[in-house]
Simulated assay, not measured.
Amino acid sequence: MATMKIKKGDTVKVITGKDKDKEGKVIAVNRKNNTLLVEGVNMVTKHTKPSMANQQGGIVHQEGPIDASNVMYVHNGKPTRIGFKMDGDKKVRFAKSTGDVID
């Protein structure tokens, strides 16, 4: 399995689909299905039963998964591709547009 280039906490921009051009922070990453949960993107309606955690129940709006190929990492306000390189003996991510190390 290839490594995910986008991690939890990254800011991403949606490049295709119904939420095109929206930006948000990555909430969760699912490496198995190659999907992400992004804040405010792909909102779905879920009907919930009353439970101990949610006494009222009812209709809840929450983020749905979006494929990782449909988003781009945002670096300095611009979307960019991500690459990997060795920085000494450590593998780091870098923005391909500028060459800056991300983490």
Rank of each mutant, 00 (worst) to 15 (best):
D89F: 12
V12D: 10
S97P: 01
I82G: 05
D103H: 09
A53Q: 12
G58V: 14
I66K: 00
I66C: 02
K20I: 15
K5T: 13
D87L: 08
N42P: 10
S69Q: 05
S69V: 08
I59D: 10
V60K: 08
G57C: 15
P50R: 07
S69W: 06
Q55H: 14
D87N: 14
Q55S: 09
N34G: 08
G24K: 01
K49G: 07
V60G: 03
D67S: 14
G64Y: 04
V44H: 01
I27Y: 04
Q56V: 10
K90A: 12
D89S: 14
V41S: 09
K13M: 15
N33Q: 13
Q55M: 09
V14E: 13
I66H: 01
I82D: 12
V12K: 02
I59R: 09
I82L: 08
V26H: 00
V38S: 05
T35W: 03
G40F: 01
G64I: 06
F94I: 02
G17F: 11
R93K: 08
V74T: 04
S97H: 04
K8Q: 14
N54L: 12
M43F: 00
K85L: 14
I66P: 02
F84S: 08
Q62A: 07
Y73I: 06
A68W: 02
L36R: 00
G24A: 10
K13N: 10
T98H: 09
K78E: 14
H61E: 15
